[in-house]
Design a protein around this nucleic acid. Structure first.
Lengths: 336, 336
DNA sequence: TTGAAAGCGATACCAT
DNA sequence: ATGGTATCGCTTTCAA
């Protein structure tokens, strides 16, 4: 298909070496031959074969990006920012969506390694076992974790302040006067889940609030599951007056359940989401939520990886980005 | 980093050829050596270098995917389906987001070609010039267009029935009794835009409805622009009783404007969206919209490309998928 | 059954 | 200023 350096060399009646010199702007060529060869290359629509180049350089200019499935929603704008950043930095994005049912994640590491990616950016989802990331690091791949926190991983990690996120949401409800607050939380197997819960508990403790056990739930990332879980909570003898929910998408499920129970938001039930996804201001009831600086985090993540790829030594530190509460219509004081 | 066939050959005390035969399960090896070599390879964590393999095969097993930016929303689930399908078929996804400000699209074709992708799946957005696709075809790249329609392109194209989509929405409003219907349509430079408009006009014609010029608008894909455009329409002397909107995301902008004008949906204004994006049933007012079988379209698209990649001759035909109206709360008869 | 050699396309280095 | 050659890691073909 594409023509090669050899083709050009033959057509120009010079050696391959000369062609290379002309094309790459190296010094040792006569201006005349250089121009002639360049014109010829353009005419023949020559495009250097990156594959071949990779082989000699030992560098593919490929970065593997492991993303979460679309139910996570925010994913796409993150991928977008990452792709743009990588492209700017001279890398192409090899995309893998993890937890996409098909194929084990063993094959994910496998794929990445076989394609000899220069680095990897991973946005951890619940479906990807942490071992995946450890394997990558052990294999010597340059890895940065975006919007997640993997225990004991020797790689830079970028994350939002989940402790603060939990705390902000809880404090907001407490200030509004709520005392019976239920949580649809993140499973505590993950560090993110534990941090979020720690923030919530801290706020409760400071306010001297005791929450019944049935009010602390862990829900998988699934709108329908959230709906069912919320229905159960609403059926509890002493119903909560507010819901602290792990994510805006989950809040949507919760809203459905509240509606189905013929209760109203925020009069009967206040809801706090998390993530401030695109459109949560246009939910049935505009959602009060916690905003993470997703774009900045993505940019910082790309910068970090690019530094590592350029040979710089980057400490495998965790960088925590600040979060903020966005108050909208889904929260109000409890009914008197 | 990774060890090579040579390393294994040396470690095993055999030739490279033997190692290859053992690893690839070719017949001509003694069972004993084969097992020994395989064990060794596993132990040394050998992973074949796809880059090198590509060079000899002249096949990279890379498929370029050109996607729209995240404002388009539905994008991510489409990318997800495409990635999964490609991975199943033995290909990796090289992702490019077009209209991502950075870099011209010339560099897009450039990137694709330099990386020697075996094929390309493109989801056309307004920001990508059609020339991009023609260049690709001319360069001999195997291309399939997903959810778009490019004029005179010698490549298979998969699209939803945009004529019907326009018609369904309009007919629905007409049946409800609306006669003053405004459109926030797709610019008619695109075939998709023209088809959609054709469907709408056809429904109007059949009902004998004459729509004032000011009621036909073309809006760029942008929530804020949609908001402004809607505000203008609402300020018109004889306000419409219904809005036919090019996309669910645009409907969100329209909803904002309606709210700002202190009008209610659907009592004062009915709204019909398009696309049935995830969550449009949980909009401020659950949105009546037209559903495209996005997942099936993506799957079909991948299948088509995989066929082409396997050497099959595929006709460059356009395949049109059926669409359906989803009636929710944003539409009702006009006020008497 | 096993080994050797050529080649994919580009590069770096040595030799002219 | 230009040409030749080995090399990257793997595959294919031919030879032993």
């Amino acid at each position: 298909m594409g023509c090669t350096v050899n083709d050009i060399a033959r057509a120009a009646g010079v050696s391959r070496s000369t062609v290379l010199r002309a094309l790459s702007g190296k010094p040792d060529v006569s201006g005349e031959t250089r121009d002639r060869i360049r014109a010829l290359a353009a005419e023949m629509r020559y495009r250097p074969n990156y594959i071949a180049r990779s082989l000699t350089h030992g560098k593919t200019n490929l970065v593997g990006v492991i993303a979460k499935p679309s139910i996570y929603y925010a994913s796409h704008s993150v991928i977008e920012a990452v792709e743009r950043g990588l492209r700017h930095g001279g890398y192409a994005t090899l995309l893998f969506i993890s937890g996409n049912e098909s194929g084990t994640d063993e094959s994910l590491v496998e794929q990445l390694m076989k394609n000899r990616v220069d680095g990897v950016i991973a946005v951890p989802g619940a479906m990807t076992p942490p071992a995946t990331y450890h394997e990558l690091v052990e294999a010597g791949v340059k890895l940065v974790i975006l919007d997640g926190l993997i225990d004991d991983l020797a790689a830079p990690q970028i994350t939002g302040d989940n402790y603060k996120a939990g705390r902000l949401g809880a404090e907001h409800l407490i200030q509004l006067g709520h005392r019976r607050i239920a949580c649809l939380g993140i499973p505590s197997i993950s560090t993110v889940g534990r941090e979020r819960a720690r923030g919530v508990r801290r706020a409760f403790d400071e306010a001297g609030i005791l929450v019944p056990d049935g009010f602390f739930r862990e829900v998988t990332f699934n709108e329908t599951a959230a709906e069912e879980c919320t229905a159960e909570i609403l059926a509890l003898p002493e119903r909560p007056t507010a819901l602290l929910v792990r994510h805006d998408v989950i809040a949507r499920g919760a809203m459905r359940a509240v509606e189905a129970a013929r209760l109203t938001i925020p009069e009967d039930i206040s809801i706090v989401g998390n993530g401030d996804i695109l459109g949560s201001d246009m939910f049935r009831v505009p959602l009060t939520t916690v905003r993470f600086p997703a774009r900045q985090m993505a940019d910082f993540c790309v910068d970090t990886l690019l530094k590592m790829l350029s040979g710089e030594d980057v400490e495998p530190e965790t960088t925590i980005f600040d979060v903020e509460l966005v108050v909208r219509a889904s929260t109000a004081p409890p009914r008197a």
